[in-house]
Amino acid sequence: MRFNIRYSPAAPCLESALNQSLGVPFKLLLPAFFSVAIVVVLPLLFSLYTSFTAYRLIDPDSIWNLVGLRNYLRAFANGDFWAAFGRTVLFLTIALNLELLLGLGIALLLNQVVKGQRALRTIMMFPMMFSPVLVGFQFKFMLNDSTGVVNHLLQTVFGLKSTIPFLVDAQSALASLVAAEVWNSTPVFAVILLAGLMALPKDPIEASKVDGCTPWQTFRYVTLPYLMPFIYIAMTIRSLDVGRAYDIVRIMTNGGPGGRTELLWTMVGRIAYDDSRMGYANAIGYVSVLVSVLFTLYFFRKLNAARKHMGPA
């Protein structure tokens, strides 16, 4: 019996194997690409297109009515838009700084705990497990001027004669929104900063103690510079969330009283679904996205500067 064995050249075999190795992963990723295209890319392109049209929900044919940059120019000329923009920046600035201070304090305290730290970390994370809608309802009922528990405590414990309309007065309403947002999201800062403290090298701290530094000097010149990258990471994450705040504002005040607590995204929701002007709302939405991108780029620049200040890893 004779066997005829023919050997193929090496190059075609390698080329076939290479094509197969490159083709299989791409085919495996096709469903993911397809899903992202349907869920993310197409809605973004559609909303971007409609921002240049006079599209109204009650008039489907208006989607083909191109108006160019009229929606954007209209937004920039609208005083309500700039008022909502200013409130959004103010809301974001106050909320982020309060969350940073409280989260840093909680992280420093938890880092000193020896026993029961895991249990305390779990308890600390409870607020961030609640949905913003639920947090909005909780604070709305707690701050109610007639049946709220806060006014009840102020009257029974502190002897206050009249109730405080937390959600009716413009200034206290915005402060109430900030309080709800801070309560809900401070654990994000605390968790990230606690991770930074746990990863902090012990040698620089011990060296500062040997040199006679006070606890404040050790924190100011050793601990805080090391934590700055973690702080900017937390700032970046939270700025994206706070910049698109909608749920808590919608539930607690719905932009009132008289639009005094209306932020950019609540304004977008009102114009899009209450007034049915979807094209105009999408234009304002893309301006809001641009603001969030600018904040993110700013914090990334600060993050890179902090990492360079720390030196090579």
Rank of each mutant, 00 (worst) to 15 (best):
A119P: 00
P31E: 02
F158Q: 12
P31L: 13
R244D: 05
N282D: 07
L104H: 00
V67E: 12
W64T: 14
K115M: 12
Y232S: 03
F137C: 06
R244H: 09
V133Y: 03
R56T: 13
G279F: 02
T236M: 10
T163M: 11
I271Y: 10
S131E: 00
V113K: 09
D275C: 13
H309N: 04
A17K: 07
L45N: 03
A207V: 10
Y232P: 03
N254W: 13
V113L: 10
F137A: 07
M142R: 00
N4M: 08
A77M: 12
M128A: 06
Q20S: 14
D203Y: 10
S292G: 06
D211H: 04
L174K: 04
K140H: 03
S8E: 13
A245H: 00
R301D: 07
F91P: 00
A234H: 06
S162R: 14
Y246G: 08
R301C: 12
W82T: 08
P12D: 12
M267F: 08
C213Q: 09
F76P: 04
R74Y: 11
R250P: 07
G243Q: 08
L240F: 10
W265D: 03
I248Q: 03
R87H: 02
F3K: 13
Q155G: 08
S172T: 09
N151W: 06
G196N: 06
Y7G: 04
R70Q: 14
P229Y: 03
F189M: 14
L227I: 11
I5H: 01
D247Y: 03
V39W: 07
G212P: 13
T236E: 04
L154V: 08
F33G: 07
L29E: 03
G148P: 01
L224V: 11
L28M: 11
S8C: 08
R118N: 06
S239M: 04
I251N: 04
F137V: 09
L109K: 15
A173Y: 01
F91A: 00
F91K: 02
T122P: 04
Y286N: 00
L108A: 09
A83M: 10
A207R: 10
L174S: 03
L18R: 06
P312D: 09
I164S: 05
Y49L: 14
S172P: 08
T236C: 09
A32E: 15
N184L: 14
S35E: 12
D61E: 15
V242I: 15
L90R: 00
T156D: 14
L14W: 02
I233T: 08
M125G: 10
R307K: 12
L154D: 05
N151P: 08
A77K: 15
P9F: 14
F141K: 04
W64E: 05
A32S: 13
M278Y: 15
V24E: 05
G269P: 07
V268G: 02
M1S: 12
A281P: 13
N19G: 15
V287G: 01
S239Y: 05
A175D: 01
V249I: 10
A11Y: 02
F299Q: 00
G159T: 11
F52I: 05
L120H: 01
T163Q: 10
V222A: 01
N65G: 12
V113A: 08
P215I: 10
V40Y: 14
Y273Q: 09
I94N: 02
L197H: 06
A11M: 07
